[in-house]
Design a protein around this nucleic acid. Structure first.
Lengths: 241, 241
DNA sequence: GATCGCGGTTGATTTGTATCAAGGTGAAGC
DNA sequence: GCTTCACCTTGATACAAATCAACCGCGATC
């Protein structure tokens, strides 16, 4: 398990009782509308580490909301290299990039034991037309997604990319009510490196340098941000300032 | 002028008579609904080269659809460096990343003489709830946007980035009814380089190499793609395959 | 408790791309 | 037609990060 995220419990299967309601799709829905939203949501049993939620090229029919744990989405290029497109935290949606092409572009996998809500997309469109606040939230979340991936393009040096990545995690955890300074990097270094287009060795060296500069404290998967301001400077503030 | 894009004419001010209807927001709307959409669209006179449509941090109220020419969106980091986030072709929307934060994240500028439709966002949300096909198109376009910016993150060598960029332009022009093999690179090399996080010198050298490898033919701003397959190989097919 | 194996770290070397510096080229203006 | 200037190209050098290689540490397995 991720260490930060509580295990999914049976009482946790409905939006109305889900602690992620403030971040996830149901923002602004009243009880009655939320019940209707719950009708189109399917709850799967938790995925094990590296288990696939969907694969690239598969027909698109559902979008997914992370309920607990963490998921990664990745694409495979013609040379067979994997590229991790994103890490997804509780309350975040993935599969949104599949709406336009009507098929999944990436493959989604669990990191550690993790669970999702599966939301039928045609039904979601229908309900969005019916509930303005649901539609608003969908536009907001997609806008955020656009913004996130664009801000990733802006950093170019390895320092900036890694610092930006840590800041992004930090602010996303903060939003979810977790500490913004202490977190668990449950994904392997290799995955962080891959996501940021760098070698695992570079990640390792940078972490060491950040540590000796007093910016962070890292022991295996445990990260503490000691100097948020310095980290922002390192990132060039492209990600979150 | 861009050379490829016809000048905006008075008869061109309405969605119903706009040649971009098949790509832009009104996809699937009937005549009557389109008239209602037109009510919330404002037509500005064309922008001159480098003229700003909006600036970062400005309050968000409108999204923009390119009518003719080309626009770029850019962010400025703490060190004062500009980063070009994207180039926008006719029928494409920009400003979508501002929905969530309720303020513009980037600054948008015209490249050459170019024109836009300005669409009042609160009204657009209202109409989207009313017209399912408009909502569907909004979701589609935003999905595409997410996909585009994510696929940019995937390429890492300079070859891949530049090849991917050319392929992206090619497929976008093709969709718009222009040639997919011959195009006008109206933006300066400096801007291409900036967008792809590389030095202008590198762009120049790569173009030269692509040319001597028989992949493209470039004379100043005129680009012909001679070997689409080789270009796709160079890109690693991350962008468009 | 010893062994295995994976993930992570550290060091040496190579490579791709940025940077620096100089020269070329074409469009706009006089 | 000549000048000018911005943009682009070309070459030499420097540097950041990848790669290659070895080693370490720790959990899993027997």
């Amino acid at each position: 398990m991720s260490g930060q995220i509580p295990l999914v419990s049976p009482s946790f299967l409905k939006c109305s009782s889900c602690s992620l309601g403030k971040l996830c799709l149901p923002v602004g829905l009243d009880k009655k509308d939320m019940l209707e939203l719950e009708q189109i949501i399917e709850n799967f049993s938790p995925y094990k580490n590296d288990e696939k939620v969907f694969e690239a090229d598969q027909k698109f029919d559902k979008i997914f909301a992370v309920k607990s744990g963490m998921f990664k989405t990745l694409v495979i290029d013609t040379q067979g290299n994997e590229h991790i497109v994103g890490f997804h935290l509780p309350g975040e949606l993935f599969g949104l990039d599949a709406i336009y092409p009507k098929k999944y572009i990436a493959t989604a996998m669990a990191i550690g034991t993790s669970s999702v809500c599966a939301i039928d997309y045609p039904e979601l469109e229908r309900l969005s037309g019916k509930f303005p606040s649901l539609q608003h939230q969908m536009f907001s979340l997609m806008s955020k997604e656009v913004h996130n991936s664009q801000s990733m393009m802006v950093e170019y040096s390895a320092d900036q990319k890694l610092a930006g990545f840590l800041l992004s995690l930090s602010s996303r955890y903060k939003q979810r009510g977790y500490s913004e300074t202490r977190m668990h990097l449950i994904m392997p270094r290799r995955d962080i490196a891959n996501h940021l287009n760098m070698a695992p060795e570079t990640v390792s060296r940078l972490f060491k340098r950040f540590q000796s500069d007093g910016v962070v404290d890292i022991k295996r998967t445990d990260l503490s941000i000691l100097d948020m301001e310095k980290l922002r400077q390192l990132a060039g503030c492209a990600s979150d300032c």
